[in-house]
Every structure is written in structure tokens, then in C-alpha cells.
């Protein structure tokens, strides 16, 4: 399988996960913040020879309260739509300095993270630009399905029907969030033929999956992209105790397809097709969150139908919403 063709330092079990932290305690994130786990895990496996930029968003504002920082590795803020361009800047600068002998020639990871608003909406063209370069860089889009830092507004990646401060249920319109979730990882993979690695992941489920995807992305080299699904206790309205479960529900229900696209080959890392693991009802996922409290059974059925369609009808489930070719 394609995934085996990558030579990388695979973490083979939870006891083999590096113990040392490079994003450490003392950040202003929510209790049970899954995005904080996403941060912690990527830098843990990337290691200390890494430079990081973080776009404006929760993982910027919550993590760093001035004159303090939870980061042990070098970290820099970048603007909301600058996830891709900041990664290029760091990678290009380091490459030039090494080549010209101005700094020691050694591998240094350049990683940029951005949220769904910054990366999936505003910064999309910058990320596209980054994925067209030949720089070694990794862009991680942590997706908590909202502008979580401005008190939860809908983005292009919010789940259909979700309540946000821009999409409140009303007496006339029960559902204000009528947009279907934008498929960013699939779009980027399909649109950038020379990008060797695109993946989706969830910080804590399945165990090790995300950490190994980060390791693979860095090992493959060139510009790479990982989209993580980050349950948000604040905006999705569930108790922080259940951050892991909510992510697991979302993935097992097939709502959040987990895959890798390695040099043009798709590998499902949690295969929700009926022929494979199958799916749990999306109802279980929706009921567990206050942001869906206003939905009625028909809404749930509609979401279920679209998810079933994605897994059973699309030619490449979860990646490209294409059902085949019509004869001319």
C-alpha cells in the first residue's frame, strides 16, 4: 500500500510516543481543547529543530497571553490568511541561508498552522500557492468548524445546521447554517498534482494516526497539508470531558472522512464504506452537542443521507464529489 512506501520514523505504540513536550503547559485554551492536543501532538513528533507560525485564531489568541508563551520551539504569529505564505517565507529564508552558507546546513522543519476560517476560507489561495512550491513545509489546518476566537461564527467548514452566532435558529428559519461543509483537503489534493502528501486526521482518534501522519508529511518532503477535525467544547457545546468521544463519533459516523493522499493514491485510514468498517448513525454525533439542539428528525435524516451518499456514491468517497462520467 502507498502508505508503506514512505520511509519514516513510525510511532509503533503509545508507549513509543516521545515524552518530551515542545508546546507545554500554561496556555489559555478551553478545558478539554482538542486543538491544543493537535498543537501538542504535531510539535511533539516534529521535534525541537522546527520553526512554527500560527495564524490568528484560537490557537494564537488562546495560546499566547503576552509576555508568556507555551511554546518551547521558535514560534511566530502570522495573519489570518497567511498560513501558506508564512510557511513559504520561513522555508525559503532558511533554504537560502543554508545554501549561501549563512547558517548551518541542517534539516529544520517549517510548520504553519491555521484554523478553518484562516485556512479554509481566507487563506485558501495562500495555501494553494504554498502547495505549488517545492519547499519543505507542512501546513496544518485545525478545524473547529467556526471562528472560535470571535465567539463562534460560522465558517465555510461549519457542519450543516450548526448553531453559531452568525447562524442562530429563529422562529422563521430553524436552520441558518445552510452551507455544506467545504472539502478543503480533497480540493487541495485534487488541485495540486505535485503536492505529495495531503491527509485528514483527528488528534486523538484513532490513537497515533495523527502523529504518524505528521511524521509522514515531514518525511515525504515538499509542501504538505493536513486537515484536522478538532471538536470544540465551547462552540459545539459539549462538556470538555467528552472531546475525544465527539471526535470519535464524528469519524465513525463518516461525517469526517479520514484519509491520506500519497503521490496520488488515496488510503482510507478509517474506512466508513459499507464494504469496510461501515458507519454509526450521525444522530449519535449530533445529539451529543448543544449546537444541534434545534434540529428536528428531518434535518438529521438529510445529513445522514448526504453522508451515505458521500461514502457509497462518490467515485472517491470523501475526496471528490464526483459520481462518474456521462457519455457525451
Amino acid at each position: 500500500m502507498a502508505t508503506e512506501t514512505i520511509v519514516y520514523d513510525k510511532i509503533k505504540g503509545v508507549h513509543k510516543i516521545p515524552l518530551e513536550e515542545f508546546y507545554t503547559s500554561g496556555h489559555r485554551t478551553c478545558q478539554g481543547c482538542e486543538s491544543a492536543t493537535t498543537m501538542r501532538a504535531f510539535i511533539k513528533v516534529a521535534g525541537p529543530r522546527t520553526v512554527v507560525t500560527g495564524s490568528t485564531g484560537c490557537m494564537y489568541v488562546a495560546n499566547t497571553s503576552y509576555m508568556t508563551t507555551p511554546w518551547i520551539v521558535p514560534w511566530m504569529h502570522t495573519q489570518l490568511g497567511a498560513g501558506g505564505s508564512s510557511a513559504i517565507g520561513m522555508a525559503a529564508g532558511l533554504r537560502a541561508l543554508k545554501r549561501k552558507g549563512k547558517i548551518k546546513d541542517e534539516p529544520i522543519n517549517a510548520i504553519a498552522f491555521c484554523g478553518d476560517l484562516g485556512g479554509g476560507d481566507m487563506g485558501l489561495s495562500g495555501i494553494s500557492g504554498a502547495l505549488q512550491t517545492d519547499y519543505d513545509l507542512l501546513i496544518i489546518m485545525y478545524d473547529n468548524e467556526s471562528a472560535a476566537n470571535t465567539d463562534i461564527q460560522a465558517t465555510g467548514l461549519s457542519t450543516y445546521g450548526a448553531q453559531t452566532t452568525f447562524t442562530p435558529p429563529g422562529s422563521k428559519h430553524r436552520i441558518m447554517q445552510k452551507r455544506w461543509k467545504k472539502n478543503v483537503a480533497g480540493m487541495l489534493a485534487v488541485g495540486h498534482p505535485t503536492c505529495k502528501y495531503v491527509a485528514t486526521a483527528c488528534a486523538t482518534f484513532p490513537p497515533l494516526d495523527y502523529m504518524n501522519k505528521v511524521r509522514k508529511a515531514l518525511a515525504v518532503g515538499g509542501p504538505t497539508f493536513i486537515h484536522t477535525y478538532d471538536p470544540c467544547p465551547k462552540g459545539w457545546d459539549f462538556h470538555p470531558r467528552y472531546s475525544h468521544e465527539i471526535g470519535e463519533f464524528g469519524i465513525k459516523s463518516g461525517l469526517y472522512p479520514l484519509f491520506e493522499i500519497i503521490e496520488g493514491q488515496v488510503v482510507y485510514t478509517y474506512d466508513c464504506r459499507k464494504t469496510a468498517k461501515g458507519r454509526t448513525p450521525v444522530k449519535e454525533f449530533l445529539e451529543a452537542q448543544g449546537r444541534f439542539a434545534h434540529l428536528i428528525p428531518e434535518d438529521v435524516d438529510y445529513i445522514q443521507k448526504r453522508v451515505d451518499d458521500m461514502w457509497e456514491e462518490w467515485d472517491i468517497p470523501g475526496v471528490a464529489p464526483i459520481k462518474g462520467v456521462l457519455k457525451a
Binding site: L19, G26, H27, P48, T68, P70, W71, I72, P74
Partner: peptide, 27 residues
């Protein structure tokens, strides 16, 4: 601003942490 100094060893307080912003009063 200076980063948190890199320190790690097994055992209590073996991992370096952000000394100027602890989170205890959140719980």
C-alpha cells in the same frame, strides 16, 4: 518574548512549563 526553556527529565516537574501563566484557577 523568550520561549519556555527546553528541559525534560522523568519524574515530578520534569517537563519545563510556562512559569508566568499557570492555569490552576481554571479548574
Amino acid at each position: 518574548v523568550p520561549a519556555v526553556k527546553r528541559e525534560f527529565s522523568l519524574g515530578p516537574k520534569g517537563q519545563s512549563r510556562n512559569e508566568t501563566f499557570k492555569r490552576g484557577t481554571t479548574k
